[in-house]
Computed example of a mutant assay.
Amino acid sequence: MPEPATLAAFTTLRLGGPAGRLIEAATEAETLRALRSGGDQLILAGGSNVVVADEGFPGTVVLLRERGLRAEERDGAVRLTVAAGHPWDDVVATAVSNGWSGIESLSGIPGSAGATPIQNVGAYGQEVAETIVSVRAYDRARDEVVTIPAAECGFAYRTSVFKHNSRHVVLAVTFRLSASARSTPIAYAELARSLGVEQGATAPLEEVRATVLKLRAGKGMVLDPADPDTYSVGSFFTNPVVPAPDFERVRALAADLGPMPSWPAGGEIKLSAAWLIERAGFTKGYGSPGRGVALSGKHTLALTNRGSGSAAALLDLAREIRAGVVERFGVTLHPEPVLVNCAL
């Protein structure tokens, strides 16, 4: 394991240098006290969607450690409020075991509940924007705790008003789930096939969760201390969304590579970053042993620390992949994780 003195100890990549100061906050009061202490601050909880520079972060790192869930069930609906530091997969497991549907396809995603609205976390046809009612946050500009309704969160594909903006710090999230032992309609083709149902059908919550966990594990997307393929931030690049003319141009360039995955996305077309990466020549496991970083051996969208890597080497690999995809297809990939004290 990384040295506790470095931020590598608090990230799923196991990369990152020292913090100028480290504060662990186990309650909302402790969190607010830390946030009001001033200076440059970095907020961390699960550390699953962040790349921290080898030089670390010279300011104060606040570790959100508050946990807790509160559920109110009425008229077939459940309002579930979760503290920001609560592990996300525990939230999903709790919902599934209680027969609350709406987030079952988000099983196995590492990190904390508080990170989910920031990234508008999504997978296998679900995203948290579909179930979030409101976000409780500390507003730095007003120096007060506010409740932000979902309509004001600016949710879009893997983003929100909270991403790349330090004004608000998420303290808790309230979700609206359905009191049902069956899932929401299965929208993702791979998941539907694995469950043996048609797209748009439903399935028992427990079966959906077990199937998603199996699919994610097969791609190295479930944390496993014994498996370096999981020392990652999950998907490093977002799936690019392009206008229809660009889609036709890319499809023509890829005509000799077989069917190109694509999905409608609000009048534009979403492409598969993993498909583009692999067809640009970066196959599973691609990397240099001397650098200590490589693409996952299970999924080309995950850049991994093989145990002896550095943030600098990981970013070099990301730049190489991004440049290769631009050269082959003319599409620029954008990083999904937050980059701290470093840039791509």
Rank of each mutant, 00 (worst) to 15 (best):
S235A: 04
A179L: 14
A25E: 06
I23N: 09
H168P: 13
D229K: 10
L32D: 08
A84Q: 07
S160C: 01
V208L: 02
E144P: 10
P204T: 13
M1H: 14
K219A: 02
Y231N: 13
V293S: 01
E130D: 15
S178W: 10
W275R: 08
L276F: 07
A265C: 09
V78N: 04
R322L: 06
T184W: 13
V325L: 10
G111F: 03
G292V: 06
T300P: 11
G111W: 01
V128M: 02
A203K: 05
P4R: 08
Y157M: 08
A9V: 04
G307T: 09
I321G: 14
G76R: 08
G56W: 08
N165W: 10
L271W: 01
V91S: 04
A318I: 02
A83D: 14
T159I: 12
G59M: 10
F247H: 12
A26T: 14
A93F: 08
G46N: 09
D229H: 10
S160W: 00
H299I: 02
G122Q: 03
R328Q: 08
I186H: 01
A318Y: 03
S262W: 12
P58R: 02
A95Q: 06
A29S: 14
S310I: 04
E144G: 15
P110E: 04
R182P: 09
N341I: 09
W263S: 05
S134N: 14
F162Y: 05
D89L: 13
